[in-house]
């Protein structure tokens, strides 16, 4: 009996001694909190049709195939929008982990675009706390249509339009991310003299992650110019992200036929209530062009 007790105490103390000794060793490591930067606020560089806060990592190239079908209410004759589509091909490359450049080509007005996307602030916790991530997005669109008979594009600058956005995002939890998108669209050439060149807007977008590879996204842009707001509708889109390793597939419904910001933010003419809804998809493929240092030279 007492022998058993002694044995028990010996075992207990030895176990205790082992764990104490190990914890003691563990305590040698720096226990100062480090700064944890939030990652994967959004799966893709697009929330639905507009930009998310995400920029590509250094050395990675994204190929973005964007496609908006015609309106669903265009009837069987147009096969519910299948016959009229707006598409865009885009490439974006991460020069650094914060700075990326992109080019693209849209069918609408044969428009080329060049863009800059820069991560200004990173959401973080721990030693350094930053509540939000902020990304700047700037795009220049160049209409490459032939100059029509009325000599609309007298100067090259007549063909240009700009989008400037600050994307302010917060990942509230692994499953909820939201962002605000104040934007300023500038048109060098407007349809009439009375139309505004500068069109400010405020957007809101978010994602709700339903599983590790599947999320629900939404995006809305509220146009702050009264004249434009009266003539057009605000862009509203709902979509899902399906992530399969190297690809992100985005399927969505939107009232915007156009794809790039200088068109879809001010000039969305679809009315959700009347069924002016477009089915659309984005396919985003990631290529690694430059590997991290630890893997270079292989």
């Amino acid at each position: 009996m007492t022998k058993g007790l002694t044995l028990l105490i010996v075992i207990f103390l030895s176990v205790l001694q082992v764990t104490v000794a190990q914890d003691d060793l563990m305590n040698l490591f720096d226990n100062q909190p480090s700064t944890e930067y939030t990652t994967a606020t959004f799966k893709s560089t697009n929330v639905v049709i507009g930009q998310s806060v995400k920029v590509p990592a250094k050395g990675t190239m994204l190929l973005n195939i964007q496609h908006h079908f015609g309106p669903l209410n265009s009837g069987f004759y147009n096969f519910y929008g299948f016959d009229q589509a707006v598409t865009r091909l885009g490439l974006r490359y991460g020069i650094t982990n914060r700075l990326s450049i992109g080019i693209g080509r849209t069918t609408q007005n044969k428009t080329w675009d060049a863009s800059l996307k820069v991560k200004l602030l990173r959401q973080s916790s721990g030693a350094k706390v930053m509540p939000v991530s902020i990304t700047y997005y700037g795009l220049m669109g160049i209409i490459s249509l032939k100059n029509p008979d009325n000599n609309k594009y007298v100067y090259f600058s007549n063909r240009l339009a700009y989008v400037n956005q600050l994307i302010i995002a917060r990942k509230f939890s692994p499953s909820l991310s939201l962002q605000l998108i104040p934007s300023l669209v500038h048109q060098n050439l407007t349809e009439t003299r009375e139309d505004p060149n500068d069109i400010p807007s405020l957007g809101a977008a978010g994602r709700i992650k339903l599983s590790n590879r599947f999320s629900f996204n939404f995006e809305y842009h509220y146009v702050l110019n009264q004249k434009i707001a009266a003539a057009y509708h605000n862009s509203l889109s709902f979509g899902i992200d399906i992530e399969t390793g190297g690809h992100v597939f985005q399927l969505f419904l939107t009232n915007s036929a156009p794809i790039t910001g200088q068109y879809f933010i001010p000039y969305t003419d679809g009315d959700w209530l009347k069924g002016d809804i477009h089915i659309g998809f984005n396919i985003i493929r990631t290529f690694t062009l430059v590997k991290p240092k630890a893997f270079s030279g292989r």
């Binding site: 190990q22 390793g245 990631t286 991290p292």
Partner: peptide
């Protein structure tokens, strides 16, 4: 004893790293 921060793993592809952590 060892103590390893999972976010300190660097992958050949940045996307893999994101998937690994996420």
């Amino acid at each position: 004893v060892f103590k390893v921060l999972m976010k300190s793993f660097v992958f050949e592809k940045a996307l893999m790293q994101e998937h690994f952590n996420e």
